[in-house]
Design a protein around this nucleic acid. Structure first.
Length: 200
DNA sequence: GTGTTGATCGTCT
DNA sequence: GACGATCAACACT
């Protein structure tokens, strides 16, 4: 077993209730850093997310409800899953209040639970690349469109609050072409499990 | 180390 | 008909 290489304890914090998500997406996003996300017991510590607000041209909800994004317009505390580039799945947590259509994209995890399952699904041994991107972590955790609109506080999803304070870095988001300057990417600066380092 | 490109298809124009 | 909240492979410096 490869050694863990950062300071997070493996002890799980208290379960996150759906009400956790009924706040500004810019409060929820940094608060998710250091939390643990599991799907059927497989997952790890959230080390990178991005916030998407309904007034944000880069958000899927910016132009109003469609068949794809309808979950974003529903109540907070549910998963919004969409297909990216025709190939990958990406998972978001819906925030704020019903109709506000804001969500947090989960971009990277530090793998801690179910390493064997993740390696098998990813056909990959290197744990630093198992969950280091939004499309990678959904593959590792087995997330598909079947998880769209599922509640975040019931099986198969389990979320646990972080157990100690962390310093959360902010920076510009990755891979978008609109509103590129908004500093709405949050994460653990220096983590070896990010999709991309935060600048110094 | 950095930069470029193809894969692949649902969604929206 | 064009594009995209991505990834992996490859070329190149």
């Amino acid at each position: 077993m490869a050694p863990r290489s950062n300071a997070f304890p493996l002890r799980l914090g208290k379960p996150l209730k759906r009400t956790f998500f009924g706040r500004s997406v810019h409060e929820v996003a940094p608060d998710l850093i250091g939390a643990t996300m599991l799907v059927d017991g497989v997952g790890g510590i959230i080390v990178e997310v991005e916030a998407y607000h309904h007034t944000d041209p880069a958000a899927h909800s910016y132009r109003g409800p469609t068949q794809r994004n309808q979950v974003m317009f529903g109540p907070p505390g549910y998963a919004y899953v969409y297909r990216s580039y025709g190939i990958h799945w990406c998972v978001n947590f819906v925030c704020e209040e019903e109709g506000s259509a804001s969500a947090v994209l989960i971009r990277a995890l530090e793998p801690t639970h179910g390493l064997a399952a993740m390696r098998r699904r990813r056909h990959l041994q290197d744990m630093h690349a198992l969950c280091s991107g939004p499309g990678k972590l959904t593959e590792a955790l087995g997330i598909t469109i079947a998880h769209n609109a599922v509640p975040l506080d019931r099986p198969p999803i389990a979320l646990h609050a972080r157990t100690e304070d962390v310093e959360v870095a902010a920076g510009i988001r990755i891979g978008i072409t609109k509103a590129v300057e908004l500093p709405w990417r949050y994460g653990i600066k220096g983590s070896k499990f990010l999709s991309k380092p935060f600048p110094k």
